[in-house]
Amino acid sequence: MPAKDIYHDTAKNALIKDGWVITNDPLTLQWGKKDLFVDLGAEKLLAAEKQGQKIAVEIKSFVGLSEVANLEKALGQYTLYYDILQRLEPERKLYLAIRKETFSDIFEEPIGSILLENKRLRLIVFDSIEEVILQWIP
């Protein structure tokens, strides 16, 4: 099993505060002979529905030397997990969880905004100090 991101517990706490129940830590995806590990699986029951929403969350800190290299790696993981989840659990939506600083540094710049414009990924933006979700970008 891979090491947890440095903001794993922070993002997990923010999701819990937002009303999500953590169902998997990590969420294991078995594909062929390979096991992949998405950081979290969570579920939220909606008052009007008997079944709730299900999400998978990959948490990334973006604290390496190169923001572009971090983005490339995160996108590669996200794409792989997305494609496998579409086959195994199509009702579960995949999100990339990032700190508000990362959102500002990358996704408010042209290199990240093009990904959002083209709907390449879903984001959860969280405050790493307050441990709260600031924004959901579907």
Rank of each mutant, 00 (worst) to 15 (best):
I59W: 03
F107Y: 01
L36I: 11
K93Q: 14
N24C: 07
S113C: 06
N70M: 07
T102Y: 12
E131I: 01
R120H: 15
I124N: 04
I16M: 06
L85P: 01
G19T: 03
I6R: 10
F126K: 08
Q135S: 02
L71F: 04
L15Q: 04
Y95T: 01
T23S: 09
G76L: 11
F126R: 06
E108T: 13
G19Q: 11
V38P: 00
G112T: 07
V21C: 11
K50Y: 10
S104G: 12
L88C: 00
I6F: 10
R120D: 15
L123D: 02
A11S: 15
R120Q: 03
K4T: 03
I55K: 04
Y7P: 01
T102A: 06
K12H: 08
M1I: 08
S66Y: 02
P110M: 00
I133R: 00
G112S: 13
L45R: 07
I137K: 13
E67W: 14
S61M: 07
A48G: 01
K17Q: 01
F37Y: 13
A47L: 13
R92D: 13
L80T: 10
K12N: 12
R120K: 14
Q53Y: 08
G41M: 02
T79S: 06
E67G: 11
P138E: 14
W20S: 00
K73C: 10
G52D: 08
Y81I: 03
V57H: 03
Q51V: 15
E109F: 13
P2H: 09
P138V: 12
T79C: 09
E89S: 10
I124D: 10
L46R: 14
T102D: 04
V132A: 01
